[in-house]
Protein backbone atom coordinates (compact mmCIF):
# COMPACT_ATOMS: atom_id res chain seq x y z
CA UNK A 1 0.00 0.00 0.00
CA UNK A 2 2.73 2.37 1.03
CA UNK A 3 4.77 1.33 -1.97
CA UNK A 4 2.08 1.89 -4.44
CA UNK A 5 1.52 5.22 -2.80
CA UNK A 6 5.08 6.33 -3.49
CA UNK A 7 4.85 5.28 -7.12
CA UNK A 8 1.56 7.08 -7.42
CA UNK A 9 3.07 10.14 -5.81
CA UNK A 10 5.85 10.21 -8.31
CA UNK A 11 3.43 9.66 -11.11
CA UNK A 12 1.24 12.36 -9.79
CA UNK A 13 4.08 14.83 -9.66
CA UNK A 14 4.88 14.01 -13.25
CA UNK A 15 1.28 14.34 -14.27
CA UNK A 16 1.09 17.68 -12.58
CA UNK A 17 4.17 18.91 -14.30
CA UNK A 18 2.94 17.73 -17.69
CA UNK A 19 -0.45 19.26 -17.31
CA UNK A 20 1.04 22.44 -16.10
CA UNK A 21 3.31 22.51 -19.11
CA UNK A 22 0.39 21.79 -21.44
CA UNK A 23 -1.72 24.51 -19.91
CA UNK A 24 1.22 26.88 -20.04
CA UNK A 25 1.60 26.06 -23.72
CA UNK A 26 -2.01 26.92 -24.32
CA UNK A 27 -1.69 30.08 -22.30
CA UNK A 28 1.37 31.02 -24.29
CA UNK A 29 -0.54 30.41 -27.51
CA UNK A 30 -3.44 32.52 -26.39
CA UNK A 31 -1.07 35.11 -24.96
CA UNK A 32 0.72 35.38 -28.29
CA UNK A 33 -2.62 35.70 -30.06
CA UNK A 34 -3.80 38.34 -27.61
CA UNK A 35 -0.60 40.33 -28.10
CA UNK A 36 -0.87 40.01 -31.87
CA UNK A 37 -4.41 41.35 -31.67
CA UNK A 38 -3.34 44.16 -29.34
CA UNK A 39 -0.58 45.07 -31.76
CA UNK A 40 -2.97 44.77 -34.66
CA UNK A 41 -0.55 42.35 -36.22
CA UNK A 42 -3.00 40.66 -38.54
CA UNK A 43 -0.28 38.67 -40.27
CA UNK A 44 0.64 36.96 -37.02
CA UNK A 45 -3.01 36.37 -36.22
CA UNK A 46 -3.41 34.61 -39.57
CA UNK A 47 -0.33 32.53 -38.86
CA UNK A 48 -1.58 31.60 -35.41
CA UNK A 49 -5.12 30.64 -36.31
CA UNK A 50 -4.28 28.53 -39.36
CA UNK A 51 -0.63 27.53 -39.31
CA UNK A 52 -1.07 24.89 -41.99
CA UNK A 53 -2.44 27.31 -44.52
CA UNK A 54 0.16 29.88 -43.59
CA UNK A 55 3.16 27.60 -44.01
CA UNK A 56 1.79 26.02 -47.14
CA UNK A 57 1.06 29.32 -48.83
CA UNK A 58 3.70 31.63 -47.40
CA UNK A 59 6.63 29.55 -46.23
CA UNK A 60 5.75 26.96 -48.84
CA UNK A 61 6.81 24.24 -46.47
CA UNK A 62 5.16 20.85 -46.48
CA UNK A 63 5.44 20.40 -42.76
CA UNK A 64 4.60 23.61 -41.12
CA UNK A 65 4.47 24.73 -37.60
CA UNK A 66 0.79 23.95 -37.40
CA UNK A 67 -0.51 23.88 -33.88
CA UNK A 68 -3.85 22.37 -34.68
CA UNK A 69 -4.80 21.56 -31.12
CA UNK A 70 -4.21 25.09 -29.96
CA UNK A 71 -5.93 26.43 -33.05
CA UNK A 72 -9.00 24.55 -31.93
CA UNK A 73 -9.03 26.75 -28.86
CA UNK A 74 -10.27 29.64 -30.91
CA UNK A 75 -12.57 27.76 -33.24
CA UNK A 76 -15.62 28.85 -31.29
CA UNK A 77 -14.68 32.52 -31.63
CA UNK A 78 -14.02 32.31 -35.35
CA UNK A 79 -16.85 34.79 -36.04
CA UNK A 80 -15.26 37.35 -33.72
CA UNK A 81 -11.87 36.77 -35.32
CA UNK A 82 -13.44 37.21 -38.73
CA UNK A 83 -15.06 40.44 -37.67
CA UNK A 84 -11.72 41.74 -36.38
CA UNK A 85 -9.75 40.66 -39.44
CA UNK A 86 -12.32 41.98 -41.91
CA UNK A 87 -11.41 45.62 -41.33
CA UNK A 88 -7.99 45.43 -42.95
CA UNK A 89 -8.99 42.77 -45.44
CA UNK A 90 -11.93 44.76 -46.79
CA UNK A 91 -9.72 47.81 -47.20
CA UNK A 92 -7.28 45.70 -49.19
CA UNK A 93 -10.03 44.15 -51.31
CA UNK A 94 -11.53 47.55 -52.08
CA UNK A 95 -8.24 48.44 -53.76
CA UNK A 96 -7.65 45.12 -55.47
CA UNK A 97 -11.20 44.37 -56.50
CA UNK A 98 -12.81 47.80 -56.79
CA UNK A 99 -15.83 46.28 -58.51
CA UNK A 100 -16.80 44.02 -55.59
CA UNK A 101 -19.18 45.62 -53.14
CA UNK A 102 -19.26 43.92 -49.75
CA UNK A 103 -22.19 43.72 -47.43
CA UNK A 104 -22.08 42.39 -43.89
CA UNK A 105 -24.62 39.65 -43.28
CA UNK A 106 -23.53 38.54 -39.80
CA UNK A 107 -20.67 38.71 -37.35
CA UNK A 108 -17.53 38.23 -39.44
CA UNK A 109 -19.67 37.23 -42.43
CA UNK A 110 -19.80 39.14 -45.69
CA UNK A 111 -21.37 38.70 -49.08
CA UNK A 112 -20.49 40.72 -52.11
CA UNK A 113 -22.08 42.10 -55.23
CA UNK A 114 -20.44 42.59 -58.57
CA UNK A 115 -20.62 46.27 -59.48
CA UNK A 116 -22.68 49.23 -58.38
CA UNK A 117 -25.06 49.26 -61.30
CA UNK A 118 -28.78 48.63 -61.38
CA UNK A 119 -29.73 45.07 -60.38
CA UNK A 120 -26.08 44.01 -59.99
CA UNK A 121 -25.61 40.34 -59.25
CA UNK A 122 -24.93 38.85 -55.85
CA UNK A 123 -21.65 37.20 -56.63
CA UNK A 124 -20.61 35.22 -53.58
CA UNK A 125 -19.37 35.26 -50.01
CA UNK A 126 -16.06 36.15 -48.44
CA UNK A 127 -14.25 33.73 -46.14
CA UNK A 128 -12.34 36.19 -44.00
CA UNK A 129 -10.38 33.53 -42.05
CA UNK A 130 -9.19 31.79 -45.20
CA UNK A 131 -8.94 35.03 -47.21
CA UNK A 132 -10.86 33.49 -50.03
CA UNK A 133 -13.85 34.22 -52.22
CA UNK A 134 -16.60 31.64 -52.35
CA UNK A 135 -18.17 32.52 -55.68
CA UNK A 136 -21.77 31.76 -56.47
CA UNK A 137 -21.17 28.96 -58.92
CA UNK A 138 -24.10 29.78 -61.24
CA UNK A 139 -23.20 33.45 -61.57
CA UNK A 140 -19.51 32.74 -61.86
CA UNK A 141 -20.09 30.19 -64.58
CA UNK A 142 -22.12 32.70 -66.60
CA UNK A 143 -19.26 35.16 -66.43
CA UNK A 144 -16.69 32.52 -67.41
CA UNK A 145 -18.89 31.43 -70.31
CA UNK A 146 -19.32 35.03 -71.44
CA UNK A 147 -15.55 35.45 -71.63
CA UNK A 148 -15.36 32.20 -73.58
CA UNK A 149 -17.95 33.39 -76.08
CA UNK A 150 -16.00 36.58 -76.68
CA UNK A 151 -13.93 34.71 -79.26
CA UNK A 152 -17.07 34.16 -81.32
CA UNK A 153 -18.00 37.80 -80.73
CA UNK A 154 -21.15 36.69 -79.04
CA UNK A 155 -22.72 37.63 -75.79
CA UNK A 156 -23.96 35.05 -73.33
CA UNK A 157 -27.55 35.25 -74.50
CA UNK A 158 -27.08 36.19 -78.15
CA UNK A 159 -28.35 32.84 -79.41
CA UNK A 160 -31.37 32.75 -77.14
CA UNK A 161 -32.28 36.31 -78.02
CA UNK A 162 -32.05 35.73 -81.75
CA UNK A 163 -34.14 32.60 -81.36
CA UNK A 164 -36.81 34.49 -79.43
CA UNK A 165 -36.75 37.30 -81.97
CA UNK A 166 -37.31 34.99 -84.89
CA UNK A 167 -40.11 33.35 -82.92
CA UNK A 168 -41.64 36.76 -82.40
CA UNK A 169 -41.35 37.47 -86.12
CA UNK A 170 -43.20 34.25 -86.90
CA UNK A 171 -45.90 35.08 -84.41
CA UNK A 172 -46.25 38.54 -85.88
CA UNK A 173 -46.50 37.02 -89.36
CA UNK A 174 -49.27 34.79 -88.06
CA UNK A 175 -51.15 37.81 -86.82
CA UNK A 176 -50.53 39.76 -90.00
CA UNK A 177 -51.76 36.96 -92.24
CA UNK A 178 -55.18 36.77 -90.57
CA UNK A 179 -56.93 38.49 -93.43
CA UNK A 180 -55.36 36.18 -95.98
CA UNK A 181 -56.48 33.15 -93.96
CA UNK A 182 -60.00 34.49 -93.73
CA UNK A 183 -60.22 34.74 -97.51
CA UNK A 184 -58.80 31.28 -97.88
CA UNK A 185 -61.26 29.80 -95.40
CA UNK A 186 -64.13 31.42 -97.25
CA UNK A 187 -62.86 29.98 -100.51
CA UNK A 188 -62.48 26.51 -99.02
CA UNK A 189 -65.95 26.57 -97.54
CA UNK A 190 -67.40 27.53 -100.91
CA UNK A 191 -65.54 24.69 -102.55
CA UNK A 192 -66.88 22.26 -99.97
CA UNK A 193 -70.38 23.51 -100.51
CA UNK A 194 -70.00 23.13 -104.26
CA UNK A 195 -68.67 19.63 -103.81
CA UNK A 196 -71.65 18.66 -101.67
CA UNK A 197 -74.06 19.91 -104.28
CA UNK A 198 -72.40 18.16 -107.19
CA UNK A 199 -73.82 14.89 -108.44
CA UNK A 200 -71.22 12.22 -108.06
CA UNK A 201 -71.07 9.14 -110.26
CA UNK A 202 -70.50 5.94 -108.29
CA UNK A 203 -67.14 5.33 -109.95
CA UNK A 204 -65.99 8.84 -108.88
CA UNK A 205 -67.17 8.50 -105.28
CA UNK A 206 -63.82 7.69 -103.73
CA UNK A 207 -62.10 10.48 -105.64
CA UNK A 208 -64.74 12.96 -104.50
CA UNK A 209 -64.43 11.76 -100.93
CA UNK A 210 -60.72 12.29 -101.11
CA UNK A 211 -61.12 15.81 -102.45
CA UNK A 212 -63.59 16.59 -99.71
CA UNK A 213 -61.29 15.28 -97.06
CA UNK A 214 -58.49 17.42 -98.40
CA UNK A 215 -60.60 20.54 -98.14
CA UNK A 216 -61.72 19.65 -94.63
CA UNK A 217 -58.12 19.17 -93.60
CA UNK A 218 -57.17 22.47 -95.12
CA UNK A 219 -59.94 24.20 -93.24
CA UNK A 220 -59.02 22.71 -89.89
CA UNK A 221 -55.42 23.59 -90.56
CA UNK A 222 -56.40 27.21 -91.12
CA UNK A 223 -58.54 27.27 -88.00
CA UNK A 224 -55.66 25.89 -86.04
CA UNK A 225 -53.50 28.74 -87.25
CA UNK A 226 -56.23 31.18 -86.26
CA UNK A 227 -56.16 29.84 -82.75
CA UNK A 228 -52.41 30.20 -82.65
CA UNK A 229 -52.70 33.76 -83.89
CA UNK A 230 -55.17 34.54 -81.11
CA UNK A 231 -52.59 33.42 -78.61
CA UNK A 232 -49.79 35.20 -80.43
CA UNK A 233 -50.26 38.56 -78.76
CA UNK A 234 -49.77 37.06 -75.34
CA UNK A 235 -46.80 35.04 -76.55
CA UNK A 236 -45.20 38.08 -78.11
CA UNK A 237 -45.59 39.92 -74.81
CA UNK A 238 -44.04 36.99 -72.94
CA UNK A 239 -41.33 36.91 -75.52
CA UNK A 240 -40.55 40.57 -75.03
CA UNK A 241 -40.27 40.01 -71.30
CA UNK A 242 -37.83 37.17 -71.80
CA UNK A 243 -35.76 39.15 -74.26
CA UNK A 244 -35.61 42.04 -71.80
CA UNK A 245 -34.42 39.70 -69.04
CA UNK A 246 -31.77 38.25 -71.30
CA UNK A 247 -30.59 41.61 -72.61
CA UNK A 248 -30.39 42.85 -69.06
CA UNK A 249 -28.23 39.89 -68.13
CA UNK A 250 -26.00 40.51 -71.13
CA UNK A 251 -25.67 44.14 -70.14
CA UNK A 252 -24.80 43.21 -66.56
CA UNK A 253 -22.21 40.69 -67.66
CA UNK A 254 -20.87 43.19 -70.18
CA UNK A 255 -20.16 45.59 -67.32
CA UNK A 256 -18.57 42.80 -65.31
CA UNK A 257 -16.28 41.91 -68.16
CA UNK A 258 -15.30 45.53 -68.64
CA UNK A 259 -14.49 45.82 -64.94
CA UNK A 260 -12.30 42.74 -64.96
CA UNK A 261 -10.45 43.77 -68.10
CA UNK A 262 -9.89 47.27 -66.78
CA UNK A 263 -8.32 45.93 -63.59
CA UNK A 264 -6.71 42.64 -64.55
CA UNK A 265 -6.41 42.63 -68.31
CA UNK A 266 -8.00 39.23 -68.77
CA UNK A 267 -10.21 36.69 -67.10
CA UNK A 268 -7.29 34.32 -66.65
CA UNK A 269 -5.32 36.97 -64.80
CA UNK A 270 -8.35 37.62 -62.63
CA UNK A 271 -8.68 33.94 -61.78
CA UNK A 272 -4.97 33.68 -61.02
CA UNK A 273 -5.20 36.62 -58.65
CA UNK A 274 -8.17 35.09 -56.86
CA UNK A 275 -6.16 31.89 -56.56
CA UNK A 276 -3.25 33.67 -54.88
CA UNK A 277 -5.38 36.00 -52.79
CA UNK A 278 -4.19 34.65 -49.41
CA UNK A 279 -0.54 34.91 -50.37
CA UNK A 280 -0.95 38.35 -51.89
CA UNK A 281 -2.77 39.61 -48.86
CA UNK A 282 -0.22 38.37 -46.33
CA UNK A 283 2.53 39.85 -48.51
CA UNK A 284 0.63 43.11 -48.52
CA UNK A 285 0.30 43.01 -44.72
CA UNK A 286 4.04 42.60 -44.48
CA UNK A 287 4.71 45.33 -47.01
CA UNK A 288 2.33 47.82 -45.42
CA UNK A 289 3.34 46.98 -41.89
CA UNK A 290 -0.01 45.40 -41.22
CA UNK A 291 -2.08 48.17 -42.82
CA UNK A 292 -2.28 49.57 -39.30
CA UNK A 293 -2.40 53.08 -40.59
CA UNK A 294 -5.45 52.54 -42.72
CA UNK A 295 -7.23 51.34 -39.65
CA UNK A 296 -6.70 54.44 -37.58
Amino acid sequence: MANSNTVSDREHVQATQELSKAVANKIRYLQTLATAIDNKDDRLVYQLIDGDRYSEQIVQAKHGSADTDNENLVSDIAAKLGQYLSANLLAYLAETYPFFYFEQIGLGKFQFYFGNWWDRRLFGELDVIKVQFIFDSTEYEKLRRAFELEGQSKRLNSDKISMLSSQADQLQALIDSQEQRDTEKEKTRLQLKKLAQEKVMPWEASKAKEAKQQLVNQLSNLTEQDEKAQDAYRLIKDNEKKVLELSKEDTLIGYEKQSIIAKFGSFDAFEARCESLYRDYIADLIATNGRKNTNE
Binding site: N116, W117, W118, D119, R120, L244, E245, S247, K248, T251, G254, Y255
Partner: peptide, 16 residues
Protein backbone atom coordinates in the same frame (compact mmCIF):
# COMPACT_ATOMS: atom_id res chain seq x y z
CA UNK B 1 -34.57 47.19 -66.49
CA UNK B 2 -35.49 48.63 -69.85
CA UNK B 3 -33.83 51.92 -68.96
CA UNK B 4 -30.76 50.01 -67.80
CA UNK B 5 -30.47 48.23 -71.16
CA UNK B 6 -31.26 51.30 -73.26
CA UNK B 7 -28.87 53.46 -71.25
CA UNK B 8 -26.13 50.90 -71.88
CA UNK B 9 -26.90 51.05 -75.60
CA UNK B 10 -26.66 54.82 -75.32
CA UNK B 11 -23.26 54.48 -73.65
CA UNK B 12 -24.46 55.26 -70.10
CA UNK B 13 -24.65 53.17 -66.99
CA UNK B 14 -27.66 53.09 -64.71
CA UNK B 15 -25.98 52.97 -61.33
CA UNK B 16 -27.16 52.47 -57.80
Amino acid sequence: DRLFVEAANGGRMLEL
